[in-house]
Amino acid sequence: MTEENETPKIILPDDTPVDLQKELRLSNVQEVLDELDKELIGLKPVKTRIRETAALLLVDRVRNKMNLTAASPTLHMSFTGNPGTGKTTVALRMAEILHRLEYVRTGQLVTVTRDDLVGQYIGHTAPKTKEVIKKAMGGVLFIDEAYYLYKPENERDYGAESIEILLQVMENNRDDLVVVLAGYKDKMDTFFHSNPGMRSRVAHHIDFPDYSPDELLMIAKLMLADQNYRLSDDAAEALLEYTKRRMKMIHFANARSIRNALDRARLRQANRLFNSTSKSVKKIDLMTIEAEDILASRVFEEGTLDMDGDEGADIKPQEPIVDS
């Protein structure tokens, strides 16, 4: 590349050729984007936004080489969406992409919730928040259930203090830290509404759509493949039916509900193999989840859930489902 040999003083002619493709190869970011395409099912708007961000950073880098300096873009983001739509997974990827594009120095992701930021008594919050920010420096700070930081019903709540410090850091240490806020759509809307400073400092608002049953089935297959399991054809059909029924019930948490369902299917599969009368269990049997493992679910029996049987066993009503 010619521009690498130039000293900063020289102004390049306007028709200097730019090899964006080479730049893309050098950054290895294509790999991450491809991986994202392969491993994340659906989520069209999210992928588009990540692609755009990656393109912007890449172009910025080339512009820098051409001495077309601009202020580095603000990359603070908010991820909104229902439970289990992959907010944390995407945040992790985001850290990696930003690292490859040299926007952040380390690819680390520090995940925190209100408890990690807000203190218990007066004067406890500021050091606690600062401690977290210090640890996240050079990477991405992911604040899960961010709307909890602000509790409008209690004006003596220390959350506001934490938000103040965050705002300051988001403004002053833009080069050191990318803050990603995540939470459910409606609650985050209220949060941003009552914190206009926060809203204006977060440049990218990305909404995570719910998955369709077909997408959830693909996700299930990916999850199982990771653990060296597979679904038989009947089981796949059963799971699709399961998903459709489950989606109509309360506490449906998209991919997370599917993961829980699969975990229970594995339990039943193990039990089935254990109790099977035939002596010869083959390797393929250990790997395959059959339709009966899924059809035994309570979702099919009564169409309702109970606290101890299927979905939502560990979820109390009114409590948010914590992203994992």
Partner: peptide, 17 residues
């Protein structure tokens, strides 16, 4: 001044302190 800083990965946080 403050706490000793364990588990840090980036100098920026320490410089801030």
């Amino acid at each position: 001044y403050g706490m000793p800083m364990f588990d840090m990965t980036d100098p920026a946080g320490i410089l801030m302190e």
